[in-house]
Design a protein around this nucleic acid. Structure first.
Lengths: 100, 100, 100, 100
DNA sequence: CCGTAATTAACAAAAC
DNA sequence: GTTTTGTTAATTACGG
């Protein structure tokens, strides 16, 4: 068996005249296209949900921030917040203590 | 009925002490997180498929190019190719005619 | 200087045989390439600075966060922080009051 | 000399009460902000040039493609084009030979 | 060197 | 309509 046939794991008649196993390639392409379509649908669903939430008085931008925070380890978040706070102090970026 | 209750369409007892209808917000957040999870799973599936194709001798980068082309209107593609070719000519970027 | 102009003795019109004014196009391309080169150099300088700061004990990620905050209007930042805080309250995401 | 002073290479009086050498941090931040500003200016200049070229009849999208090609090794470009052509053949995506 | 993470550029969508 | 904003894709840099 030739190297190319071994590489692609296909019978000889699945190989196009140019040496590319077109059927195998087509199957990969179509499976990926199908998955990307589903992914795009979910993206649209998510966008719709944010719009609906916005219509009900919620702030999508802040919702996204919440979701981002919930994905992270709380300890990591606290740690990073602490460093950020130190840097703000060192740079005089903090609001007056009365509103902390 | 208060303005906020009207805006959010919720019964009084669904409103947190801070004025945010927490349950409604939580439901939105959790629905979005669920959809994002499914979306991420599909993204992983697509990556896996590219890896499998690569293992079988295909070039993922070129596959992506193919998929991008298939999404476009063929006439658009031809049109843009034609302009690109003109620009290459004008800039002397073309290979010798023998291999065109 | 354009080869084509020399070859064809074209002057003001500078139009290639394919109808594209190659000299004008080339000038645009080269000006853009020059600017992109300078832009890339600055990007490298910035990366070097972050590395140097990291070597001196600073956290580049937090520095980036600081820089992002300094670009925004402080009132906007405070406003958004306030909403974020309300949402966290409503979702029970706040740490115990003792460490607020 | 304390560990922190060594790490930051600063005299004791440059250290804020919270342990962060604020002056050193501020200098880094401001240098980076300056460089980013210059970088943004170049980005705007590039955008302006594309707009001007567009106003003179050139296609910015194709110009970008040209610039991308000129950055790459020509052999790489040819190689990838060849694979793309093979895949198109194998998938029946080629135009009739008469217009190749 | 490979996979991962982060930056950047391209594209699409939505606000004004 | 255009102009910004947000999302997605791709390149690049980094660490294992």
């Amino acid at each position: 068996m030739s190297e190319m046939q071994q590489a692609h794991g296909l019978a000889a008649d699945a190989i196009s005249t140019n040496g590319i196993p077109g059927e195998e390639l087509r199957v990969y392409i179509e499976r990926i296209e199908r998955l990307e379509e589903e992914k795009a649908t979910l993206g649209q669903d998510i966008r719709d949900l944010y719009l609906e939430a916005k219509g009900n008085g919620f702030d999508p931008k802040v919702m996204k921030e919440i979701i981002k925070l919930r994905k992270k380890d709380p300890d990591e978040v606290d740690e990073e917040d602490a460093i950020l706070h130190l840097y703000k102090q060192a740079l005089g970026m903090l609001n007056p203590p009365s509103i902390q």
